[in-house]
Design a protein around this nucleic acid. Structure first.
Lengths: 349, 349
DNA sequence: CTGAAAGCGCTTACAG
DNA sequence: CTGAAAGCGCTTACAG
């Protein structure tokens, strides 16, 4: 079924069919109804490629997910398990706004070239990037951006500095430093002063900010940041395990540990427990994300709640707004986080 | 940049550019290289819409995810948390096969119409459905299928019976009955004979087969299936909670409980524990899925491992094969599962 | 081996 | 308010 047949059956021209389909105003109700009747009866839907080629937008948004392969557990590609709900929320909001979403997974820097490629091929009108790791390809993308971009978890200043003059970009972050500050405040309030930290993937803006926030906050409270309690977790279970074991072997332990995500916190708890230590009696542990498992594990995990849905919403709405307007614009939004106190922390013994 | 410019710069016709781009054989190396040089220098990529309109495939696969809204926790749309890794695997495999993927989330029966709509609009060449719930719209889709379909978790017989003669469909399932049989065998081996069961969403083929498998297996062992131990969980945390509490109030408890997914098992454990019971000492619990949380909770969850990656792989490879061939075909694949014994079961006290 | 031409199914000035 | 015509950027017989 094509518009020509609809036109014939309705006794009008293809132009008119097009006007009705696109809901243009200069069509009398009678004509419109005549056409719609045929459309409904035959379930006509316009060929997307033809529309796009004729000048319409693709009405599709590209979603690019940076994924971390856990070398030790190749099956477990959702290294960033928080992507699940996030992806879902993005798809949902896009669909509600009338956009389809083309989803891609990226594993290495070279994969980033698929973003400009998808624009070149005219497969999408704009793109959302999540879990972005800083690298050359992304810098180039931002520097040459000629299509709207929503970048989740990225340094807004880096964008402002390097974006092309006609760029339309929105960065979406959450209050990573405030979240970590809440953790430190809470632990300090409990009486802890020997606080360790497990870092995330530092190429990631959130991981970097959590680390920086930790150092700044500790400094603000004149608390010593002991190098032997700074563990390199890299958002990886395996790396966290190794770092934890090394610390346990060394024998000098903090009384509390803040992990840059839930997954690493869970591994930390596990390792501690296997070493015969009790959580939270012997050592307190805080996570970050408030993922699906956090309320279910025992002790239930005290953690910082990431506003995934709100971030997804901001990214989509922001992108849709950029799509609707030709004006260059660089926006940034930072959403608040909240410490969710459960059972994994206690005063130092 | 369009093919005409490439042609001009390379000193050939657009036809030749097209032949090179599409890697046709009847082009001498010299001509090919001349064209490719220009293509590389200008980073030319053909406009997808134009290619499709001119008769090429869209090279995109639609991924439709049936999602269950947890009414009680609207934020938590990934009711089926196992979709995370699954989606990732599907996207990965599609990309490796040269396909883009258009992802959609479905929440209610009416949403199913988006599948034929996406075909009508010529947005995709084939579709993968996951978490499909049986309903009228899906029946229609299968009955009229004129494009390749891969349906994960669906009754293969229902497909054979109602599919149109020219249908190209593959159904992908795992051994749900065998998985449940393993659970019952294991529990019986431990000495249990008072075994309860928490059902999933019964509109789902896997949930139905798990239930049927449970009844059959219990019968095979001459074990009584007590109605008061058959809980209606519906893959929902909230419903599971309610059902568990009702059972606890009634007071007549089984010595072991098999849940149709991990999430419900975790809620069951939680509820039991809140009622002062110990798991596994007082009551054993088995899950299904072996999701991210299973090995991390305490007691670590004994559960049936779903072969997510393999299922995603089979769905994609199966669909790609159907896409490559015009022949009608109805295939079905069933992948084996495995009981992962951890800490949540013990002999009855 | 290669090019000129037709055609894919729409949209959009343009003219009336 | 409506239609005829041009055009979007490719691919593909067809002819040579």
């Amino acid at each position: 079924m094509k518009s020509e047949e609809v036109a014939r059956l309705a006794g009008v021209s293809r132009s008119t069919v097009s006007r009705v389909i696109n809901n243009y105003s200069n069509v009398p109700d009678e004509t419109r109804e005549k056409v719609m009747k045929v459309v409904r009866e035959h379930n006509y839907m316009p060929n997307t490629s033809a529309r796009v080629l004729a000048g319409k937008g693709t009405d599709t948004i590209g979603l690019f997910i940076f994924n971390v392969h856990d070398e030790n557990n190749p099956g477990h590609i959702y290294g960033n398990s928080y992507f699940g709900p996030f992806v879902n929320a993005v798809v949902d909001r896009c669909n509600h706004n009338g956009y389809s979403v083309l989803i891609h997974t990226l594993y290495k820097e070279a994969d980033c070239l698929r973003i400009p490629a998808a624009f070149s091929e005219k497969r999408m009108d704009g793109a959302i990037l999540i879990g972005t790791e800083k690298n050359e390809a992304i810098d180039q993308l931002i520097a040459r951006a000629d299509h709207p971009l929503a970048i989740v978890d990225y340094n807004p200043r880096a964008v402002s500095l390097s974006a092309s003059p006609q760029a339309r970009i929105i960065t979406v972050n959450s209050g990573d430093d405030a979240g970590i500050a809440d953790c430190v405040d809470y632990l300090a309030g409990l009486g802890h002063c020997r606080i360790g930290f497990i870092t995330g993937r530092l190429l990631t803006w959130s991981a970097e900010r959590r680390l920086r926030g930790f150092k700044a906050c500790m400094k603000g409270r004149s608390l010593h940041v002991a190098p032997q309690w700074m563990l390199s977790g890299d958002f990886s279970r395996q790396k966290t395990l190794v770092a934890m074991q090394a610390m346990l072997v060394a024998g000098d332990l903090p009384t509390a540990l803040i992990a840059s995500n839930d997954d690493m916190a869970l591994v930390a708890i596990d390792t501690l427990r296997n070493a015969g230590l009790r959580v939270p009696e012997d050592i307190s542990v805080i996570g970050y994300d408030d993922g699906l498992a956090a309320p279910l594990v025992r002790p239930a995990l005290t953690t910082v709640r990431m506003p995934f849905l709100e971030m997804a919403g901001s990214a989509v709405e922001g992108l849709v707004a950029l799509l609707a307007d030709e004006e260059p614009a660089i926006h940034t939004v930072t959403l608040p986080v909240r410490l969710i106190v459960r059972e994994s922390c206690a005063p130092p013994s």
